[in-house]
Design a protein around this nucleic acid. Sequence first.
DNA 1: CGATAAATGCAACTGATTTGCAAATGCTTT
DNA 2: AAAGCATTTGCAAATCAGTTGCATTTATCG
Lengths: 150, 150
Amino acid sequence: MEHCDIHTTLEHAGLSKTSRRVAVLTVLVHAQTPLRVKDILDRVCGEGQINKVTVYRILASFKAEGIIREIATDHGVNFYEMACRHNPTHPHFYCRICRSLSCLPEQVIRESRFEHLLTGNQTVDGITLNLTGVCGTCNLIKDGHRRSKQ
Amino acid sequence: MEHCDIHTTLEHAGLSKTSRRVAVLTVLVHAQTPLRVKDILDRVCGEGQINKVTVYRILASFKAEGIIREIATDHGVNFYEMACRHNPTHPHFYCRICRSLSCLPEQVIRESRFEHLLTGNQTVDGITLNLTGVCGTCNLIKDGHRRSKQ
DNA sequence: CGATAAATGCAACTGATTTGCAAATGCTTT
DNA sequence: AAAGCATTTGCAAATCAGTTGCATTTATCG
Ligand SMILES: [Mn+2]
Ligand SMILES: [Mn+2]
Ligand SMILES: [Zn+2]
Ligand SMILES: [Zn+2]
């Protein structure tokens, strides 16, 4: 699958190409699902490592520049994914058992579809559509438990 | 505006009508916007007060029974609102400056509209549609700052 | 009334995110 | 190159929402 060029993206956002920013962006660009800060730390295990505070700060700057999207969940853990043209806004599914987040990529969400709902002079810069429930894997485990109790 | 009967709701959910549950549900039923735990604690300032742990446990039981909805936000603070027939699922607007959440009540969101996106055997029990941005009040303040700097 | 289960409060804990500050790094000007 | 200044990073500590363990109270049942 195609993805953005790391260096072009940073240049276009006006962010200098430090080793840490390149490392974090590389991880995000190659991710198949949205990532938590912990996931990013695990995957940036190159030579000089990286501090979690640095990751938080880099993510904040990426978000401010519109490079990435932030997806909040109950349980207070945020996920991050690319917000480039290769990855338009789409719904997600969050499993409240295993706390995993997966993309539901078939339906693109247009901001314009909801802007008429705004009555005051709000400014919208993001949309999140999340389904919550129990994922397939956790449902299987649940069924197993149910059977073994009968 | 009309709202659910406290006692009927608790009975129907199979929850005993303790003073704390009645207090929390009363606050939620009369709220004009989704509330944080802190808001609920502020509003349940009757005689015997109430402990925050109790509020968390009551909210967990309400959510498990489908009495209320939970709305997650960046910043890791959850909001709660009634999930009864008087208040069908609808989008919300979250201001990332003042961290307030407001209801956008004009567009009802039907779970069925998104279920065809699920490929595996997930179980869906909730949908959240959030717009994020800067609210009218915070935009006014921002404009004020911009002017005073010119 | 006792026995038992459910609900509550309190203190301590957890875990994600943030803040303060000092050290490192990078770029500009002399 | 050296000095000056802004940006980035790391480390320790703080913050803050939410959770857990356990003792106490309150409700329920026979
Ligand atoms: Mn996604
Ligand atoms: Mn609402
Ligand atoms: Zn799961
Ligand atoms: Zn605001």
